[in-house]
């Protein structure tokens, strides 16, 4: 019997850590939190997400309603400055093209995270539940800062796990809108083409909420945190003793 645990159960290996003397009592340090492939997927996916949102709004403007075509009641009108593509046909070209980039980077990201074991950095599990409230109290109600033990706290894990699920939902609803007949089974699970349009639109606004929250958190966590998604290295992380 081999004693090697399965890939799924292999314990999470801590990231590379550098320490160098700084003259202070504790040595300066840096942790390699985000491998190149993760950073690469993160930024390409970010570009794709913004283009998908802008072109998606332009597509929506062709029929800005979720009701019947006759009589048509418009739900809202998108300011032209937020829309991308100029007209429906142009917006569809942007949207379909960047959907491939979005799907490819999303897939590579998820496959890499799970294959490398790095997923433990962000996957929210039952053991993280107890950490949610103390973190929320710290962020929103001036509570005391809970001690950090790993690179992401419970609330961050919750957000990043949620956004991966949101990404899957965005692709699922998008595929159903793109090919409702070829993927009629997937369409049926969403309640059909008509409702899939509602879900796809809801996904957009959940992404907007995520991006706002994500930017607030990045600002709260400071410059070193932001730099880590560019260089991979986080300097002087608060979770190292």
């Amino acid at each position: 019997m081999s004693s090697t645990p399965s890939l799924w159960r292999r314990p999470f290996l801590p990231a590379r850590i550098l320490r160098w003397p700084s003259g202070k009592a504790t040595p300066a340090s840096a942790v390699y939190e985000h491998p190149l492939i993760v950073r690469y997927c993160h930024w390409l996916n970010t570009i794709a997400l913004f283009i998908l949102a802008g072109s998606g709004l332009q597509i929506f403007m062709a029929f800005p309603s979720f009701g019947p075509k006759i009589p048509q009641h418009d739900l809202l009108h998108v300011p032209p400055k937020l829309a991308l593509g100029g007209w429906l046909g142009g917006a569809l070209q942007w949207h379909i093209t960047f959907a491939w980039i979005y799907i490819a980077t999303g897939l590579i990201y998820v496959i890499y995270q799970f294959a490398s074991g790095n997923y433990r950095q962000f996957l929210f599990t039952s053991s993280d539940i107890k950490g949610v409230w103390p973190m929320a109290r710290f962020y929103f109600f001036r509570g005391e800062k809970p001690p950090a033990a790993e690179s992401y706290n419970a609330l961050q894990k919750l957000a990043y796990t949620f956004v991966v699920l949101l990404g899957i939902l965005s692709v699922w609803t998008g595929l159903v809108l793109y090919k409702p007949v070829q993927f009629s089974g997937l369409a049926w699970l969403l309640g059909g083409f008509h409702l899939a349009r509602v879900w796809h639109f809801a996904v957009l606004w959940l992404f907007v909420l995520f991006v706002i929250g994500h930017l607030i958190m990045v600002i709260l966590h400071g410059w070193n945190n932001f730099v880590s998604m560019i260089t991979g290295w986080k300097r002087n992380p608060d979770y190292l003793p």
Binding site: L36, R39, Y40, L44, L92, W94, I96, T97, F98, W100
Partner: peptide
């Protein structure tokens, strides 16, 4: 490789490249 996302974003500001790129993406579909 590291700069490729930026290079891609920059290339999209050239109209002829942009048009080829997004009609190409539609063609992949």
């Amino acid at each position: 490789l590291r700069l490729s996302p930026l290079l891609l974003a920059g290339a999209l500001f050239i109209p002829s490249v942009r048009s080829k790129f997004i009609t190409g993406g539609l063609g992949v579909g």
